[in-house]
Design a protein around this nucleic acid. Structure first.
Length: 1112
RNA sequence: AGUCCCGUAGCUCAGGUGGUUAGAGCGCUACACUGAUAAUGUAGAGGUCGACAGUUCAAGUCUGUCCGGGACUACCA
C-alpha cells in the first residue's frame, strides 16, 4: 500500500526524514558508497560560532549543500569537512564586553593567559545554535571532525606556510601609515574600517593655510618686488597635522597662478599661489577676499622644488625617512609633485605630513623628505610642541573640558597672517568601531606579505577560475588584483596565530619557524648556547610562545616579534591546515607536506560564500595558493548576494527586520525555504526575502507534487498496482500522451544537468518547477485521469501508471539536491512497497534513500522534439477552443460537432492528426475539419519578415512594411502559390521569396474564430437536439457524481439511480442511459413520475430536477 | 572617489547573437470546471521596459551620461 495523508505538512516531514537520516546514517553512506577516485572537492568556509546563525547563512549553505548533493547523486565522492573560524577581533571584543574590560586591562587586571582562555571558551558560544540550524536546514557537512583554527596542528600548518613565503622573500617588515585607534591602542585592518557605521559624518574645522615662499633663484620668478609676500595655499581638514608639515605637494598637469589680494583676517596685502581652477572657490564670494590681480598660468614644473618657511615651528628635528633610493633623508619644506593631487576640492596643493597620511609618506620618500611626528600614540601632542604640548587632537579621553585644538591652531594661523580661510566642513571620516573615536593615520611598524610581487600571476590564474557570476571574477576581483597592495599581516592583539618570527634586539638577525619540530630544535639549541631550560609550549598561543627565546647564529638571543597574524590568513590557509602537517613528508622535504587526503583534495572543485568574501576569503585562498604553490585554490566559485528584508532593506538585529531562520524553517519547512531562496532569483542577485514567497512555493511546487502523488496513491492502492522494475512496458507501446510526457521528462533531465553543471541552480529549479506544474500535473495527469479510474487493469492503464511513476521518480531525484527532505519522503512513499523486491533483484530502487541513488542521466533518444511540437499545438488549440466556448457561454460538458483548422502547411495536418483525440476529448468536440485556402473562406494577414528583409532592404524597410501590409487577399494567394514576389520600393526592386513573409490566417467570415500566432481555429457552435441531449447526459453524470461524493461513497461503490421525469432529461436518458450508468457505476437508471426522495439539483438555469441515488 | 550588481505589470521574476502586439507566476475581478477539489481552466484590468541622449531601416536588448537601490574597495588633502 502507498501511504496516504490528510494534507501536506512539510515541517513534519523534515522531522521524520531527519530522524530517518540519522538512524540510518544516510549522509555517511552517501559518501562511503562512492569511490575516492571520483572526488568532487568542496571546501567549507568556516563560520565563526561566536555570532548566531542568520537567514543569510541558510542561503549560503543551501548553495553549498545543493551542489554537493548534486555531485553525490551524480556519482562523485564529496567529502565535506566542516570548520570553525576561532580567532580575531570580534571574539576579543565579545569577551571584553562580557568581562567589562578594555584593551588596557589586558596584562594588568587580567593576564593574557586568562584572557585567551576566555576567548577560547567564548568562540564556541553559539556552537549549539549552529549545529542545530545545520541539521534543521538539511545541510550535510561533517561536524564531527571539523578543522578548528586555534588547534596547534592548524597553527603549525599556518606557520609552515608563512615560512614558505618567508623563504621566497615575500615577508618583510615595514614602516607604513595605517589606520590606528588611539583609544584602543592598536592598528586597525581595512576590514575593521569597513564595518557598518565605521564611516561617520563629522564636522571638522578646516583651514586654508598659507605657506610663505622663501625667495631664492628657484622662486625668484614669483616675486614682482622685493617686499612682496608670496604664499602657497593648502587646504586641510586636520589642522592638528599642520605642525608636522614637511612638504607641499602639487599635481603635474594642474595649472597654477598667483593672486594678489588683501587677507580678510589681517587686512594685509598678500600674494597667493593655488590652482587656477580653484580661484573662484576661495575668492570674490561672500565674506571672501577679492582678486586684485591674477598672474599668467604657472606650470607645476616651475613650482617644483620651491622652498617655503615652516608654518608652525617648535624647533623639533626632522626625523629621517628611508627614501626609495635606499638612503635616509631629512629634507623638508619643499614643493613636491605627486600623482594623487586633484582640483576637486582644496587649492590644488596638498599639505603634506608624512607621518599622518599614506600618500604623504609615499611622496616624501620618493623625494628625500623627512617627517615630523608631533602627535604620540595616545593621540596627543608631544611635549615639544609649544603651547599645544600634551593636548589631545581629538577627544580620546571623553574629557568634558576638552577643547578642540584644531580651532586654536586655526586662530593662531589667522592672527599670524597664515590663513586664507577657516571654515567648518562636513565629511565622512572613519571611526574605530570599538571606541567610536575618529581614527588617526599613524606610522606603525608591521609585517607585510609582498602580495604585489605575485600580482600578475594571481591575475593570470584567476582567469582560469569559473566565477558565478562572471562579472564578480572579472570586475570586482580582477580589478582588485590589478591594483593589488601588499598584505598587512600584523595585528597587535592577543587572541590569534602568533607570527613565527624571532629577531635579535637590533633586528640584524631573524629566524622564521615553520613547524613544531623546528621550534623544538631551535629551543634546544638556545638552551645549550644560552644556558636556558626552556621547553616548547603546549599551546602555541600567546603568552606562552612569547616566552620562548631562540638564539641567532652569532649567539645573540632572539625574541619573538609580538604581532599576531591577520585572521584572514587563517581562513585562507584552510586547504592545507585542515589536514595538518605530515611529519614524514616534512622530514623528506616534500613540496606539499600535508596529511592525507590533501593530495586528492586540492584544489577545490567548488566553493561558495557571500559576495562580501570576494576580497576576504576568496582572496586569501587565492593569494596563498598562488604565492605558496603557484596554483589556484578553487576551480569554481559561487558568490551569492545579500538577503534583504522584503522592502529591500538590509536586515539588522537593531532594526528588528532580521528573519529568524529557526522560525522560518519551523513554519514553512526547510525545503520550501531553500527552494524559494534559489528559485526566486539567481543567488548572486540580492534576495528580497518575503515569507509570502515561501508560501507560494509551498503551494505551487510542493503542493502540486503532493497532489500528484495523492492522486496516484489513491488509484494505485485500489488497483493494487506496484512498479515492476524488471518488466517495464516499452515506450513504443505507450500512448502518444505517455511518450510526450516522457520526452518532456528527458528534455528536463538534459536541461537540469546543463544548468547544474554550469552552477545555475535557479535555472535548474525553475525547469523542474515548470515540468511538475505545467507538463506533469496540468496536462499529463489532467488528461490521463480517466485512464486511472476506468475499468480493470489493461495495457493502457499499466502504461499510465508506469509513466506517471517514472515522472514522479525522476522529478524526485531532480528535486533532491534542493529539497532533500521532501524528495526523500516522496521517494520513500513511492518505493518502500517494493524495496525488498528491488534489493533481491538489485534494481535501481533498492536504495533506502533518494540520496543514495544514481542520478538519472540525459538520454537524447528518449526526446522527441516533433512530438513535443505536436503537443504544443494541441495545448494551444485546446486553449483557443476553450476560450471560444467561454466567449459564447457554451459549457464544456455541452458537446459540439466540429472545429475547423485552416491549414497553412501540409506537415501541419500530420502533426494535428497525432494529437487529434486529445484535443477532441479535452474540448468535447466530435470532429476536426481541415480547411485549405482553396476553399477561399479564410482571410489572411501578411507581414514582412523583418529578420530576413532588414539586412537586405536597410533604410527601405519602413516603406516596404507599408507596401506589404497593404497587399490584397489575391496578392497573398499569388505569393503563396508562386513562392515569389517582386518588391518595388522607392525606385529599387527586390526579389522576395515566401520566407520573406509571415502569413497568418486571420478570420473565417461567418465563423467563430480565435488565433494564436500561426494557429487559427474556427468553431461550429450549432447545437442539434442530439448534441443537446448528450450535453444533458453529461450534466446528469456530473450531478450524480456530486451526490456520490456528498454521500461519501467509495469510488468503487455501485449505485442505483432514480430520476424525476422532466422534459429536459428525458431525451438524454433515452439516448444515453448506458453512458450515464457506465460513468456513474450505476446498476440501473429509472425515470420516475413521482419521486419524493432524493436530492433536488439545478439542471439548467432555474430548472430543478430531483435525483435519487442509493448504494447497492 | 573607484569597481561591480540591480532597476521590465501592484509584488516576485523571464526576456540567446537588436527584428515590430514585451511574457510568466502571485495578487485582483468575472466566469467555468468538479472521481487531484484548501486544486484546476478561461477571460479581463494592469507596462512611456529608471531618465535622457546616441548608433541603426529597427533598441527592453548596443554605446554614453545621469538618477535611484545595494555591495565591495579606498591614502582622499
Amino acid at each position: 500500500m502507498y501511504p496516504t495523508y490528510k494534507n501536506l505538512n512539510l515541517p513534519e516531514i523534515d522531522k521524520d526524514i531527519l530522524r530517518f537520516w540519522e538512524e540510518h546514517q544516510v549522509f555517511q553512506k552517501s559518501i562511503d558508497q562512492r569511490s575516492d577516485v571520483e572526488n568532487f572537492v568542496f571546501y567549507e568556509g568556516p563560520p565563526s560560532a561566536n555570532g548566531k546563525p542568520g537567514i543569510h547563512h541558510v542561503m549560503a549553505r543551501t548553495i553549498k549543500d545543493l551542489f554537493c548533493r548534486y555531485q553525490t547523486l551524480n556519482g562523485k565522492r564529496v567529502e565535506r569537512k566542516g570548520g570553525w573560524d576561532t580567532h580575531g577581533l570580534p571574539i576579543e571584543l565579545s569577551v571584553e564586553k562580557e568581562l567589562g574590560i578594555t584593551k588596557e586591562d589586558i596584562g594588568k587586571s587580567i593576564s593574557v593567559d586568562e584572557y585567551n582562555q576566555k576567548c577560547r571558551e567564548t568562540v564556541m558560544m553559539y556552537k549549539n545554535e549552529w549545529d542545530d540550524i545545520t541539521r534543521k536546514m538539511g545541510y550535510w557537512v561533517d561536524l564531527d571532525n571539523p578543522y578548528i583554527t586555534y588547534d596547534n596542528a592548524y597553527i603549525e600548518t599556518v606557520w609552515w606556510l608563512l615560512k614558505r613565503l618567508y623563504d621566497k622573500g615575500l615577508l618583510y617588515k615595514g614602516y607604513t601609515i595605517q589606520p590606528y585607534s588611539p583609544g584602543a591602542g592598536t592598528g586597525l585592518s581595512s576590514h575593521e574600517l569597513n564595518m557598518p557605521g565605521a564611516y561617520k559624518e563629522v564636522t571638522d574645522t578646516t583651514v586654508v593655510a598659507l605657506f610663505k615662499v622663501e625667495k631664492d633663484d628657484k622662486s625668484a620668478f614669483l616675486f614682482e618686488s622685493e617686499e612682496e609676500d608670496v604664499r602657497i595655499a593648502a587646504w586641510t581638514t586636520t589642522p592638528w597635522t599642520l605642525p608636522s608639515n614637511t612638504a607641499l605637494t602639487i599635481g603635474h598637469n594642474i595649472p597654477y597662478c598667483k593672486i594678489k589680494t588683501i587677507n580678510t583676517y589681517t587686512q594685509q596685502p598678500v600674494s597667493i599661489i593655488m590652482a587656477e581652477a580653484l580661484v573662484s572657490k576661495w575668492f570674490n564670494g561672500k565674506n571672501q577676499p577679492e582678486v586684485l590681480s591674477q598672474s599668467a598660468t604657472i606650470a607645476a614644473q616651475q613650482l617644483e622644488g620651491v622652498r617655503y618657511e615652516q608654518l608652525l615651528s617648535f624647533g623639533n628635528d626632522i626625523e629621517p625617512l628611508l627614501g626609495f633610493d635606499g638612503q635616509f633623508h631629512t629634507g623638508a619644506f619643499r614643493v613636491l609633485v605627486g600623482d594623487f593631487v586633484t582640483t576637486e576640492d582644496g587649492t590644488g596643493v596638498v599639505h603634506t605630513a608624512p607621518s599622518f597620511g599614506a600618500d604623504d609618506m609615499r611622496v616624501a620618500k620618493a623625494n628625500g623628505i623627512g617627517a615630523l611626528t608631533l602627535v604620540d600614540k595616545q593621540g596627543k601632542f608631544r611635549d615639544t610642541v609649544g603651547e599645544f604640548s600634551g593636548r589631545y587632537v581629538k577627544n580620546y579621553k571623553d574629557d568634558p573640558d576638552w577643547i578642540n585644538v584644531d580651532v586654536d591652531i586655526a586662530v593662531q594661523l589667522k592672527l599670524e597672517n597664515k590663513a586664507l580661510n577657516v571654515a567648518k566642513y562636513v565629511h565622512n571620516y572613519p571611526h574605530c568601531w570599538r571606541t567610536d573615536k575618529p581614527v588617526l593615520y599613524y606610522p606603525l611598524d608591521s609585517w607585510f606579505i609582498k602580495a604585489s610581487a605575485a600580482k600578475e600571476r594571481m591575475y593570470e590564474l584567476n582567469k582560469t577560475i569559473n566565477w558565478k557570476p562572471a562579472s564578480t571574477g572579472e570586475g570586482r576581483f580582477g580589478k582588485w588584483l590589478e591594483n593589488l597592495q601588499d598584505w598587512n599581516l600584523s595585528r597587535s592583539r592577543y587572541w590569534g596565530i602568533p607570527l613565527p618570527i624571532w629577531r635579535t634586539a637590533d633586528g640584524a638577525q631573524e629566524k622564521c619557524i615553520g613547524s613544531m619540530d623546528e621550534l623544538k630544535a631551535e629551543i634546544e639549541k638556545a638552551n645549550r648556547q644560552l644556558g636556558l631550560n626552556q621547553q616548547a609550549p603546549a599551546d602555541m598561543h600567546r603568552p606562552y610562545i612569547d616566552e620562548v627565546v631562540l638564539v641567532a647564529d652569532n649567539g645573540v638571543a632572539m625574541r619573538r616579534e609580538l604581532d599576531l597574524i591577520d585572521v584572514w590568513f587563517d581562513s585562507g590557509a584552510m586547504p592545507y591546515a585542515q589536514w595538518g602537517l605530515d611529519l614524514e613528508k616534512l622530514k623528506n622535504g616534500a613540496d606539499r607536506p600535508f596529511n592525507a587526503p590533501f593530495d586528492t583534495m586540492y584544489p577545490a572543485d567548488f566553493i561558495a560564500e557571500g559576495v562580501d568574501q570576494t576580497r576576504g576569503w576568496f582572496y586569501t585562498l587565492h593569494a596563498i595558493a598562488v604565492m605558496a604553490f603557484d596554483s589556484v585554490a578553487y576551480k569554481n566559485v559561487v558568490s551569492n548576494g545579500l538577503v534583504l528584508d522584503k522592502e529591500g532593506n538590509k536586515m539588522s538585529k537593531r532594526l528588528g527586520n532580521a528573519a529568524d531562520p529557526f522560525e522560518t524553517i519551523a513554519k514553512f519547512g526547510a525545503d520550501a525555504t531553500r527552494w524559494y531562496m534559489i528559485s526566486n532569483a539567481s543567488p548572486w542577485d540580492n534576495l528580497k526575502f518575503d515569507t509570502a514567497g515561501i508560501g507560494e512555493v509551498q503551494r505551487k511546487f510542493f503542493g502540486t507534487l503532493y497532489n500528484t502523488y495523492s492522486f496516484f496513491a489513491l488509484y494505485a492502492n485500489i488497483d493494487n498496482w506496484a512498479m515492476d522494475e524488471q518488466n517495464v512496458m516499452p515506450y513504443d507501446r505507450r500512448s502518444e500522451l505517455d511518450r510526450w510526457v516522457i520526452s518532456k521528462l528527458y528534455s528536463l533531465v538534459a536541461e537540469y544537468h546543463e544548468a547544474m553543471d554550469d552552477y545555475e541552480p535557479t535555472k535548474a529549479a525553475r525547469a523542474v518547477e515548470t515540468f511538475v506544474d505545467e507538463h506533469l500535473s496540468n496536462w499529463y495527469v489532467r488528461l490521463s485521469r480517466r485512464r486511472f479510474w476506468k475499468g480493470e487493469m489493461s495495457d493502457d492503464k499499466q502504461a499510465a501508471y508506469q509513466t506517471l511513476f517514472e515522472c514522479m521518480m525522476v522529478a524526485t531525484q531532480l528535486s533532491a539536491s534542493l529539497a532533500p527532505f521532501f524528495a526523500d519522503w516522496f521517494y520513500r512513499n513511492l518505493t518502500n512497497p517494493i524495496r525488498e523486491k528491488a534489493k533481491a533483484n538489485n534494481t535501481p530502487l533498492r536504495h533506502e534513500s533518494v540520496h543514495l541513488t544514481n542520478l538519472i542521466q540525459p538520454e537524447p533518444d528518449k526526446i522527441d522534439k516533433e512530438l513535443e511540437q505536436r503537443m504544443d499545438y494541441a495545448q494551444r488549440i485546446s486553449s483557443l477552443i476553450l476560450s471560444l466556448r467561454k466567449k459564447e457561454n457554451i459549457r464544456v460538458r455541452q458537446p459540439l460537432q466540429k472545429v475547423m483548422l485552416p491549414i497553412l502547411d501540409e506537415r501541419f495536418i500530420a502533426h494535428i492528426e497525432g494529437v487529434k483525440d486529445l484535443i477532441l476529448a479535452e474540448t468535447n468536440i466530435k470532429e476536426i475539419e481541415y480547411v485549405t485556402d482553396t476553399a477561399g473562406v479564410i482571410s489572411k494577414k501578411i507581414k514582412p519578415n523583418f529578420k530576413t528583409l532588414g539586412k537586405r532592404l536597410g533604410k527601405h524597410m519602413k516603406a516596404a512594411s507599408t507596401i506589404v501590409g497593404a497587399l490584397s487577399q489575391e496578392n497573398i494567394s499569388a505569393i503563396e502559390k508562386s513562392g515569389a514576389y517582386l518588391l518595388e520600393v522607392e525606385g529599387e526592386t527586390f526579389d522576395l521569396t515566401l520566407e520573406d513573409f509571415e502569413i497568418t490566417a486571420e478570420d473565417i467570415p461567418g465563423w467563430l474564430v480565435a488565433t494564436d500566432g500561426p494557429l487559427t481555429v474556427a468553431l461550429d457552435v450549432t447545437l442539434t437536439p442530439e448534441l443537446e441531449a448528450e450535453g444533458i447526459a453529461r450534466d446528469l453524470v456530473n450531478r450524480i457524481q456530486n451526490i456520490r461524493k456528498e454521500c461519501d461513497f467509495n469510488v468503487t461503490d455501485r449505485i442505483v439511480v432514480t430520476l424525476q421525469r422532466h422534459e429536459l432529461v428525458v431525451p438524454a436518458v433515452e439516448q444515453f442511459s448506458a453512458y450515464i450508468m457506465g460513468e456513474t457505476l450505476a446498476d440501473s437508471l429509472q425515470l420516475s413520475d413521482s419521486l419524493a426522495a432524493g436530492e433536488e439539483v439545478e439542471m439548467a438555469e432555474g430548472v430543478m430536477v430531483r435525483i435519487g441515488v442509493e448504494r447497492v
